[in-house]
Amino acid sequence: MSTLVIKDLHVEIDGKEILKGVNLTINTNEIHAVMGPNGTGKSTLASAIMGHPKYEVTSGSIELDGEDVLAMEVDERAQAGLFLAMQYPSEITGVTNADFLRSAINSRREEGDEISLMKFIRELDSKMEFLEMDLDMAQRYLNEGFSGGEKKRNEILQLMMLQPKFAILDEIDSGLDIDALKVVSKGINEMRGEGFGSLVITHYQRLLNYITPDHVHVMMQGRVVKSGGPELAQRLEAEGYEWVKEELGIEDETVGQEA
């Protein structure tokens, strides 16, 4: 079993504090959903875990099986087993999806032990078929001109090809039609198991209908303010966030405000 532990994490962007003490522990074989109104720090948390260059961790810690994640470069974090499906994936001209994925896979292997082209193509084809993707997408430039839904599907393709220990999925359901939502969920459920844990950031219960979370957390004001089981997500879907705010005495949930 692997564990990702986030302790009292404070994060600034351009000198403005966004995260104000996040605590969260995720084990493999667990799915954690993170919900919360817009602008409460969910993407910031995801970015800070992955090591986005613009986000500065000012205090607190992130450890993966006792290893200091914050001391690692972005690529080292990925190699250690972290993965982030981004809310807005970059487009990279001139680099095909396939070449990119092969580089990513080979970055995890020793020189001289690169994945054979045949094996790579076999795996890629089977994963793309599983995700009901057009095989031509492999030869297109990375995310360039992809529709919103295609980009999300492509993030899940990468997830399945790279097999990380922990995946943070930032609004993987946004912009997906109903069929695509099912396919993407199928991909994530396929990953579920002993060696895999996930932090699923979402606004909607409809994703959680397909991917039942073990734990649900609510973020407000740059902190996790409430945690519970799958029923918490259902109540949020039905009633919104007002009751949480009332319960906790929060007037303005955005990060600019103090509790």
Binding site: E73, V74, D75, R77, A78, S90, I92, A104, S107, L162
Partner: peptide, 10 residues
């Protein structure tokens, strides 16, 4: 950042 987040070196 995007490429490195997949394990690719800088």
């Amino acid at each position: 950042y995007y490429l490195m987040s997949r394990g690719i070196s800088q």
